[in-house]
Amino acid sequence: MKLKSLLILSLASFLTISCAKEVSSTEAPIAVNSPNNPTVQLAKSEKSSIKKVDNFVSGEHKTQGTAKIVTKNGKSFLELDKSFKTSNSGPDLVIVLHRSDNVIGSTKPPYYSLKKGDYVLISPLKKFSGDQSYAISDKINLADYKSAVIWCRKFNATFGAAKLSNS
């Protein structure tokens, strides 16, 4: 009896799999119900693309790594890669998008101060090194901004900037 049930279950599984339509990654997820697994996702509809990417140039403090703007399902994110690293000596470090494509070259040492109106605040910096991601508000027109900047808001000091060129 167990063998007969196992054969029927195997045959039903085989027919189900062989008759299933191929699902492309742009289609909506399809859920399959079974007693052991109520919902199994067969495909994801998530679309992503990298819009802009470049390496950090040091300003007030050594800053390294890569910044990129990624769009996932219509939502933009600023992502710092695993090689990202900056100094932990500044209070109130934030990430901003800046209108200039040469923030370090267009500002004066030693602080590389930013002028109000030339940047938009994205978020406080989560950590001083490693990969991290920051959501960018839909209200921000990314075409207006050409650099990602690690900035000490309290002392108006730019730690580093990455030109965001189209990839």
Rank of each mutant, 00 (worst) to 15 (best):
I50C: 04
N73W: 03
S133R: 15
V32P: 05
K116A: 10
N37K: 09
Y119V: 08
D54G: 14
L42Y: 11
V57T: 13
V94E: 00
D118F: 13
N37E: 01
V40H: 08
K139V: 06
P124D: 02
V53T: 01
L142Q: 11
K44V: 01
Q64G: 07
D118Y: 13
L93K: 15
Y119S: 05
V57F: 04
Y119W: 01
D131V: 12
V32Q: 09
P91N: 09
F84K: 06
V57L: 06
K127P: 09
G117A: 09
P110S: 06
V40R: 09
N33K: 11
K62P: 02
Q41N: 04
V94T: 14
K139T: 07
I50P: 05
S123I: 07
S137L: 08
V53H: 00
N55R: 10
R99P: 11
D118I: 11
K82R: 11
Y145Q: 00
G74N: 10
R99Q: 11
L121Y: 08
D92F: 08
K115T: 13
N37D: 04
P124F: 10
F77W: 15
D131P: 07
D131A: 15
G65T: 06
T63M: 11
V96Y: 10
Q64T: 15
I140L: 01
Q132C: 10
T66W: 00
I104H: 03
F77K: 13
A143F: 03
E79F: 14
G130D: 08
I69M: 04
T63Q: 12
P38Q: 06
Y112G: 05
F56K: 08
K68A: 05
I69T: 12
N102D: 05
Y119Q: 04
T107W: 06
S87V: 07
L125H: 13
R99H: 05
E60P: 02
V96Q: 03
R99I: 09
F84H: 05
S113C: 11
G130H: 15
Q64R: 13
V103F: 07
L78S: 10
